[in-house]
Computed example of a mutant assay.
Amino acid sequence: MSSVPRFFIEARLSETGQHVPLPPETARQVATVLRLRPGDQVVLFNDGGPQWLAKLADVDRGATTVRLVEQQASRPSPPRGVTLCQALLKGEKMEWVLQKGTELGLAAFQPVLSDRVIARKSETPERWRRILVEAAEQCGRVTIPRLLPPLPLDQVLRTQERTLLCWEDEHALSLLDALRSAPGDPLRIVVGPEGGFAPHEVERARAASTEVVSLGPLILRAETAAIAASTLALLTP
């Protein structure tokens, strides 16, 4: 972890010497939580542009400004763009998947409504967005994953993108073998809820040309399956 705090900011970051006001929530964190002072360094990024080393010019919990010092090299993105299509999970489990998936480098999250979903009511998009931003600040990436609106499983499967659905009762094709068959292609990984996918949902997935894959011989918790599948998809060349 870097010792210099990183913050996501909506403002345009363009040139050395530019003075940038921090949003009120970030200003409060700088002044009252981190207790930073004028001259202390922070790193700013704004979702896709270069990140900047900056120095605090004025520090106040309501009006803090920084001065941009220099652009910094950003960490490379994973070689494959991966969207995690995750059936809604209860409470903290879904938030944990969003956080860890962001840290791994997922490009997007597609919440899914399937037959066995228990958590029919999702958290507000604002809360989930905040989790993504905070995870991006922590892990060093300069992009925020896209957060798509929840969709029924059948709609998620109607796509031209390559889609792999993880199912505990699949034994013929492993996720790793499926990934190696088309290296580097962007894809979508579909993971079920706490009770898994129903057999008729898997059959509909096959009918929609979705590849059904295995994550191994053991039964994984939904949140474990999500992170295991995402890691394999992101790191397999």
Rank of each mutant, 00 (worst) to 15 (best):
V4N: 08
P5C: 13
F8H: 15
I9K: 08
E10S: 15
E10N: 13
H19C: 09
H19D: 11
T26N: 07
A27H: 06
R28P: 00
A31S: 15
A31L: 09
A31Y: 08
G39K: 11
V42D: 01
L44W: 05
N46R: 12
D47V: 10
D47G: 10
G48A: 10
Q51I: 08
W52T: 12
L53S: 13
A54N: 11
L56T: 13
D60A: 15
T65Y: 02
R67E: 15
L68K: 09
A73E: 14
A73F: 00
A73S: 13
R75D: 10
S77C: 00
P79S: 13
R80N: 02
V82R: 08
V82E: 09
T83Y: 02
Q86A: 05
E92H: 12
E95K: 10
V97H: 10
K100L: 05
G101I: 04
E103C: 05
G105W: 02
G105L: 05
G105I: 03
L106A: 11
L106M: 06
L106P: 01
L106S: 07
A108E: 03
Q110K: 09
V112Q: 10
L113P: 01
S114M: 02
S114H: 08
A119I: 01
S122K: 05
E123I: 00
E126F: 02
R127P: 03
R127K: 15
R130S: 14
I131W: 09
I131S: 06
L132R: 11
V133D: 04
V133S: 04
A135Q: 08
A136F: 04
C139D: 06
V142F: 00
T143M: 02
P145R: 11
R146M: 05
P149T: 02
E161M: 04
C166F: 04
C166S: 08
C166Q: 05
C166W: 00
W167K: 05
E168R: 11
E168Q: 15
E168H: 06
D169F: 12
E170F: 07
A172L: 12
S174M: 06
L176S: 13
L176V: 13
L179C: 07
R180Q: 15
P183F: 09
G184R: 12
L187H: 11
I189T: 04
V190S: 05
P193I: 02
E194N: 01
G195N: 12
F197R: 11
F197E: 03
A198W: 03
P199S: 10
V202T: 09
R206V: 12
V213S: 10
V213C: 13
L215R: 10
G216L: 09
E223I: 07
A229S: 15
T231I: 00
